[in-house]
């Protein structure tokens, strides 16, 4: 009886040690920073994403401004939704191809699927933020000449 108890205690200790180790790893080395996993709550600023994102993600903001989406003023919320989830589309850093891109680009997507087969990752050839105004969508963007 005592031996069984000892064995149980040993097993529990080993389990706690291994569990604790993986808990430490997941907490000390999060895949994305904890504070970045959730958008900050500032409802009064939700109507102007660019005001903050010019500072915190300047590259994405600049690329968007120079892109077709930027020139046509397709604003952030059209694809990314609003942080409080009250936008017309769900709030997401990486909007889905089927759900979001297809809302406007479905005719073109249909053509592409007919020509080349289904490859539902638009971003790899048509970078949303770098889609330039006067060149082919899949050509590399030249270094920026404008600035805010």
């Amino acid at each position: 009886m005592a031996a069984k108890k000892k064995l149980l205690l040993f097993l529990a200790l080993a389990l706690a040690l291994v569990g604790g180790f993986f808990l430490y790893i997941s907490l000390a080395f999060p895949g994305s920073r904890c504070e970045a996993a959730k958008h900050p709550e500032a409802p009064e600023k939700y109507s102007d994403c660019l005001e903050c994102h010019l500072k915190v993600t300047p590259m994405a903001a600049q690329d968007w401004r120079e892109s077709k989406h930027g020139v046509l003023l397709v604003k952030c919320a059209v694809c990314h939704g609003l942080p409080d989830g009250k936008g017309t589309v769900p709030f997401a850093a990486k909007p889905g191809v089927r759900e979001i891109c297809a809302r406007c680009h479905e005719p073109a997507m249909k053509q592409m699927v007919e020509k080349y087969g289904a490859r539902l990752e638009c971003e790899s050839c048509h970078p949303h933020h770098q889609n330039p105004m006067h060149r082919k969508a899949f050509e590399a963007k030249k270094p920026s000449k404008t600035s805010f």
Binding site: R33, C52, K55, V56, M59
Partner: peptide, 25 residues
């Protein structure tokens, strides 16, 4: 670069607050 300066300002908390680590960008 100019963009780099803005981004690093926010990383250092001088202008906005970056919520990413180095490898995040």
């Amino acid at each position: 670069s100019e963009l780099g300066k803005i981004a690093h300002d926010s990383y250092l908390g001088k202008n906005g607050q970056a919520r990413s680590n180095c490898a995040g960008c």
